[in-house]
C-alpha cells in the first residue's frame, strides 16, 4: 500500500492519505494492458490502422515536448508544428545529401533546440504572453520559408520518396517494423522526459509551474528555466518531425501550419497539462478517436473545439486530471 504524508502549514496534524491498493492495481493493470495492446496491435491491424497508430505516436512525441513548455514552464508555444516541420525537413534533406539517419536526427534535434533558445530568449525576457506571439509569428515565417525556397524544399510540391532508415542492419521499410520503431521512439522520448522531470531541473520546472514567485525567491531563475523548457520542448518536436518524414514518406508544408500548432496546444490541454500521460490522451483524441466516430465527419473539429472550451471550464486539468478525483473516491470507500 502506497502512503503519502501531508502536513498543513502550521504542522498541526499529519493527515495520512492512503491510496487504495485496488486503484493502484487498476492503474498498473491498464498500463500493462495498453502496452501489450500496442505490442500485438500490428497482428490485428491493416496498414491503415498501423499508420494511424504511428501517427499517434509521432503526435504524442511532439505533444510531450509542448507539455514541457506548457505544462511545466507554464508558457504557451504556438510553433510546435513549425519545429516538427523543421525537424522533418532538416533530417530529410541531410539524409538525401548522404548523412546517416541517426546523425541527421541528432543534428535536427540540436538545431531546433538552439533555434528555440534563440527565439525564446527575447520573448521570455519580457512579459508572460510574448512567447505565444513570437512563436505564432515564427511558425508563419517557417511556413513562408518552406513554401518559397523551392530550390531547397521543393515548395508546395513537397519532397517525395523519402527512404526509411535501418537500424543495426534491420530494415525499417515494412510498416510493421516502422511501427515498432515509432513505439520505441515514443517510449524513449517519454522515458527521457520522465527522467528529466525527476532530475533537479525537472523539480525546478514543477516549482515554476506551481508557484513562480516562490521559485524565484528560492533562487531558481524563472527566465532561464522557462527558456530551457521551451528549447528542449522544441528539440523534442524536431524528433517527432524526424520520425514523421519516413513514416509518410512524403513531406510538404501544409501539415506544419499554424493550425496544427494550435491543435498541439489543445492536445496538451485536453490530455492534461503537466502530466506524463496527458500527451498520450490528447494525441489520441485528435488522431485515433475520430476514426471511431467517422459519422461525425466534418463536425468532429467543431465538437472537439467545443469540448476544449467545456473542459477548460469544468476540468481545467484535462482528462488526466480525473485521476486524482477517481483516486479520492477509492479513499472514501475505504474510510466508510
Amino acid at each position: 500500500m502506497k502512503t503519502g504524508l501531508d502536513t498543513n502549514i502550521h504542522g498541526k496534524k499529519l493527515v495520512k492519505q492512503t491510496v487504495h491498493p485496488a486503484w493502484q492495481a487498476i492503474k498498473l493493470g491498464s498500463l500493462a494492458l495498453a502496452v501489450i495492446g500496442l505490442l500485438i496491435a500490428p497482428f490485428s491491424l491493416r496498414n491503415y490502422g498501423l499508420i494511424l497508430l504511428c501517427l499517434w505516436s509521432v503526435y504524442t512525441i511532439a505533444v510531450q515536448g509542448l507539455n514541457l513548455t506548457l505544462g511545466y514552464a507554464g508558457q504557451i508555444s504556438l510553433a510546435q508544428a513549425a519545429f516538427m516541420g523543421l525537424g522533418a525537413y532538416i533530417s530529410t534533406l541531410l539524409v538525401q545529401a548522404g548523412t546517416n539517419f541517426w546523425l541527421a536526427m541528432i543534428i535536427a534535434a540540436v538545431s531546433c533546440t538552439l533555434i528555440g533558445a534563440l527565439i525564446g530568449f527575447p520573448a521570455l525576457r519580457v512579459r508572460s504572453h510574448y512567447l505565444s506571439f513570437v512563436t505564432l509569428g515564427f511558425n508563419g515565417l517557417i511556413m513562408l520559408l518552406i513554401r518559397n525556397e523551392e530550390w531547397l524544399t521543393n515548395g508546395t510540391f513537397g519532397i517525395r520518396n523519402i527512404t526509411r532508415p535501418s537500424i543495426f542492419g534491420l530494415s525499417l521499410d515494412s510498416n510493421i517494423n516502422y511501427y515498432y520503431f515509432c513505439m520505441v521512439m515514443l517510449g524513449l522520448v517519454t522515458l527521457a522526459v520522465w527522467f528529466m522531470l525527476r532530475s533537479p531541473w525537472g523539480r525546478a520546472f514543477k516549482c515554476l509551474r506551481d508557484n513562480p514567485a516562490r521559485a524565484e525567491s528560492l533562487g531558481i531563475s524563472v527566465t532561464n528555466y522557462t527558456l530551457l523548457a521551451f528549447a528542449l520542448g522544441s528539440g523534442i518536436a524536431a524528433i517527432a518531425g524526424v520520425v514523421y518524414a519516413p513514416l509518410i514518406e512524403f513531406i510538404e508544408p501544409a501539415p506544419f501550419a499554424v493550425t496544427r500548432s494550435l491543435m498541439f496546444l489543445l492536445m496538451v490541454v485536453v490530455g492534461g497539462r503537466g502530466t506524463l500521460v496527458g500527451p498520450f490522451i490528447g494525441a489520441f483524441f485528435v488522431t485515433l478517436f475520430p476514426e471511431w466516430v467517422r459519422f461525425l465527419d466534418d463536425y468532429y473539429l467543431v465538437i472537439f473545439s467545443l469540448m476544449v472550451m467545456l473542459l477548460i471550464r469544468y476540468l481545467p486539468k484535462g482528462i488526466a486530471g480525473l485521476e486524482p478525483i477517481i483516486a479520492q473516491r477509492f479513499i472514501r470507500k475505504e474510510a466508510a
Binding site: 504557451i76 505565444s132 494550435l262 489543445l266 473539429l301 473545439s305 476544449v308 472550451m309 477548460i312
Partner: peptide
C-alpha cells in the same frame, strides 16, 4: 482564457 479563445477560434 487563452486556451478557450484558441478553441473558440477553431470552433
Amino acid at each position: 482564457l487563452v486556451i478557450a479563445t484558441v478553441g473558440l477560434g477553431i470552433f
